[in-house]
Amino acid sequence: MLGYMQEIWRCRYFWTSLVRMDLRTRYRRSILGLGWSLLNPIMMTAVLCTVFCPLTGLSWTEYAPYILGGMACWQLFSSAVLQGCTAYYQNESYIRQQPMPLAIYPLRVVLGATIHFLIALGVVVVFVYTVPSALPTPQPLRLLLSLLPAVALFFVFAWSVAIIAATVNVFFQDTQHLSEVFLQMLFYLTPIIWKTDMLQNRQEAISYLVMLNPISRFLDLVRVPILENRAAPLEAYLTVICCVCVTATTAALLMRRYQKRIIFHL
């Protein structure tokens, strides 16, 4: 395991340059560059604010950073799954040429998505600091200290999820399609556009499902420090750490078993 990580580190120039290129082409192709790729979550936030603010009586200054923060996390997770599925196929020609640790190809996907996530998160933080609202202004040092481990955990989670998705997709071609359906359901079961307290006194079954959803705990880790100026609850941390452990172990086991054999199935 340690040796494998060292090998990944040894070819760092290769994957970092590919990530840099991915980001550059993504931003170069559009007139607005960076802003363009943030357009989707920002427009979504605008639409949801227009629809839900009058309905729920929330002010948009509170609701907008809430959605944007949630969308940022969700996009990282969903691109880890969906782009992770194609990671090996897209890099097939490299895999066929040079024996490299396979985990670098999902890493390529996830690093790009994580940088994207950080930019979106930056927008939320700037929003909270500049737009006057009823939200408490977070204390910068505390915010940084609570966001750093959250981002680190999220990154490891996304990477291992991408490895799992990539490996499964080699054996079952329709993984991406199935994941889309699954993600669609999960999106509504996760408090991204709605708040957990809106659920109270509603159907028990739904709240139970939502409680079980680990992704919502990931969101807490990011959103609570930004929006409520306090550390995320310990319970959220524990759930997330457990979750990361499970996916990372699965990914490591898959890599160990299939690192050499994937080439026969591509």
């Binding site: 340059s17 590919l18 490299y94 490299m100």
Partner: peptide, 23 residues
Amino acid sequence: FDIALGFEWDASGLENICYRGYL
């Protein structure tokens, strides 16, 4: 072998020299 494979299509020739080199 398969030397014509493994290019990044959107990157320039010079950039591809670097990627291949790193590989």
